[in-house]
Write a protein that binds this DNA or RNA. Structure first.
Lengths: 210, 210
DNA sequence: TATTTTTTCCGAATTGTATCCGAACAAGCA
DNA sequence: TGCTTGTTCGGATACAATTCGGAAAAAATA
């Protein structure tokens, strides 16, 4: 950011630009959005973009940051509720909420997530991953019997990344081969089965050694 | 493609352009690759790009097609071997091969996969998905006891998409929280556990109803 | 309030990139 | 060889990104 907005008016301008970025991007895709489009939608002159952003790329960066921040803001308050539920219910709940979140405002965020890579999304993804890790940790602490599961970091890595992508990809597909609800159910089952299987294994081992 | 190359010389030109596309893209990322860069690397004039491609975008499209085709060419011959292995071994083998494939040629394909969305990769992904579905189907046929698993389409959707993404993301991360081998092991376990758990369930049901 | 200083906004001018096009060159063919 | 078709090229054109200098608005000062 070339300069920081000091006055309220300027902050509104910055905000309008970011909003306009989402709108333009949702409509034309990232490659085809021009600075003029963004400026027009935001109702500001083209020059104003460069008052607060070094270049077009940086507008996208900030958009990605905001998207991640909003996603985290969605998840954080759900944590206390989720950790008390059975694993399958927790997964279902989380994914349904995430779906609704992505589809707000004409699915603006969904379209953003589709082009996530373009936006250098990856660099900004870390906080979200951390939040989800935290959710997993909290969940495990509320269900002490699950703490015996092996390779928890690896498995949560897989579930988090695989889960995010499977959902985003599904919501992006024009004619998905399966329903969203089936997908959610599948993910819930996958995770549910895994934990159950692991716990059964542990129990068996415990029985052996006793 | 505006025109088809008829002479050998022209085919070489087209090929050089596509190769140059991969090199330029791996070096600068998709947003920052210019037509001049591609032309220079390919050793042709800028004008030549437009003899066989309608625009820069289409070069990327063709690159994506080639990437998918090459991936399929990697997987196809592995199928007969994979279907005879235990599920965990099959997953391990497939992923190790895929990793090596992505890291050929200075990890050119890996960098391509990172920016997959940008390239309109999704549209071209279908054949790959189909191939993997076919692999799953073949596998199931060679292990008839697994055919009783419920929701096979959903679960293979999740495993295929989640698996591809988890691997690509992992290989892209500068400092991944887990080893690649751990990731592979985790995926193998996830899939292994799931099938085992499902089969245990089925068996129990069978016992009940008899 | 009048004046000065700071912040914000703008859009024409500049710069760079994608794309087009017609001349020049090479290949196939009679 | 002369003719036709395919191929290559790089300057010309069009359009998008970015810059810049000054006008307008807001804040600070007196």
């Amino acid at each position: 950011m070339a300069r920081k907005p000091r006055q309220k008016r300027a902050k509104e301008t910055v905000n309008a630009i970011i909003e306009a970025g989402f709108i333009a991007m949702a409509e034309h895709g990232p490659a085809a959005t021009t600075t003029r489009q963004i400026a027009d939608i935001a109702g500001v002159g083209v020059g104003s973009l460069y008052e607060y952003f070094d270049n077009k790329e940086q507008i996208f960066q900030v958009m990605a940051e905001r998207f991640v921040a909003d996603t985290i803001a969605l998840i954080q308050p759900l944590v206390p509720t989720l950790v008390r539920k059975p694993i399958r219910d927790a997964v279902r709940e989380l994914l349904q909420q995430f779906k609704e979140f992505l589809q707000q405002n004409d699915a603006r965020y969904l379209k953003c997530a589709r082009h996530a890579m373009t936006l250098g999304f990856e660099e900004h993804l870390e906080p979200l991953q951390k939040t989800l890790q935290e959710l997993v940790t909290q969940y495990l602490m509320h269900h002490p019997e699950t703490l015996t599961i092996r390779n928890i970091p690896t498995m949560s890595y897989i579930m988090i990344n695989g889960g995010i992508f499977a959902v985003v990809r599904h919501l992006s597909e024009p004619a998905p081969p399966i329903d969203f609800d089936e997908l959610v159910e599948g993910l819930a089952n996958m995770i549910g089965h895994y934990t159950e299987q692991e716990m059964a294994l542990i129990e068996r081992q415990g029985a052996e050694s006793s």
